[in-house]
Amino acid sequence: MKNNLFALLLTAVVFSVFCLGLSSCKRDKNKTQAKDKIAVVISTLNNPWFVVLAETAKERAIELGYEAVLFDSQNNPSKETEHFDNILSSDYKAILFNPTDANGSVVNVKAAKKAGIPVFCMDREINDAESSVSQILSDNFSGCVALGQYFVKKLDGKGNYVEILGIVGDNNTWNRSKGFHSVVDNYPQLKMLAQQTADFDQNKAMEVMESMMQAHSDIDAVFCGNDAMAMGAYQAILAAGKADRIMVFGFDGSQDVVNAIKEGKIEATAMQFPKTMARTAAEFADRYLKADRNFQKKVPVAVELVTADNVHKYGAFEKLE
C-alpha cells in the first residue's frame, strides 16, 4: 500500500514536471516568435508604387509570424545608412530591402551580411551579386523592349520624341532606357530631341516636360521611365494644349495611368508586379530563417505591356483575375 502510494505520488510529480516543462517550452517559443523582427527598408514612400511594395512586404511578413517595421529612406542614401545602423544594432532577423542607389547601397548590404543579417532586395538592384541572399527584380529591359516596339508601331516608325529618365544612379533607369533604345534606335526616322532626368518624380517631370516643349515645338511622343513621370508629363502637355498631338508612354502600371490608358490620354505602360516581388521577398526571408539556403541570386519578375487593347485585364499594379 505504502509502495503503491509512493508510486502514485512519483507519477504525479513526474507528470506535473513534464506538463510544466511543456508549458514553459511553449511560452519560450511564443516569446521567441514575438522577438523575431523583419525590417522593410524602402527607398521612398513618396510614390504610390513603393507604398504598395512596402505595405505588401510588411503584411506578408506579419502573416508569416514576424514583427515587421517599415523604414523610409526618402531617396537619400545617408538616411538609408542610418536605418541600417539602427537595424544592425536592434536584433532584426532579416531585411527586405529596396535600395536607393545601385552602387551606394552595396556598403549597407555588406555591413548586414557581416552582421549575419540576410538581405533580400526588392525591385531595385545593387551592383554586387554576392552580398544579398537574393534580388527579386522586374525584368525592366524586356518590358521596355515591348514598350519600344509598341512605340514604333504607334509612331509608324517616324517622328520626334523626348525621353524622361528616372534616378541616374538606379539600374532600373538604365535597363528601361536601354531596352527602349534597343528597339527605337533601329529606326533612323525616329529622332530623339532631348533626354533629361526627373528622378521618377511627378512634379519634376512636369517641369522637365514644360521646358522640353519650350525648346522643341515639334515633339510627337514622350517616353517616361515610370508612371509618376508619365502623369507629370501628361499634365504639362495638357496645360500646353498639346494633348492631341503628343503621345505619352509610361512604365509601372499605376492606377492613374491604367485609367488614363482607358480614357485614351496615355498610350501604354508596362505593368510591374510589386505585390509579387514583395511577397516573394518576405517568403524568401521566412525560408532563410527556417534554415533554407537554396536561393536563386537574381529572380526576374516578368513585366507585361498594357495598351488600350488589353487594359481591361489590369488594375493598379496587378492583373485582374
Partner: peptide, 11 residues
C-alpha cells in the same frame, strides 16, 4: 542571371 554582376550585363 546569377552569373552576372548586374542585369545590365545579362541583357
Amino acid at each position: 542571371p546569377d552569373d552576372f554582376q548586374n542585369t545590365m550585363d545579362f541583357n
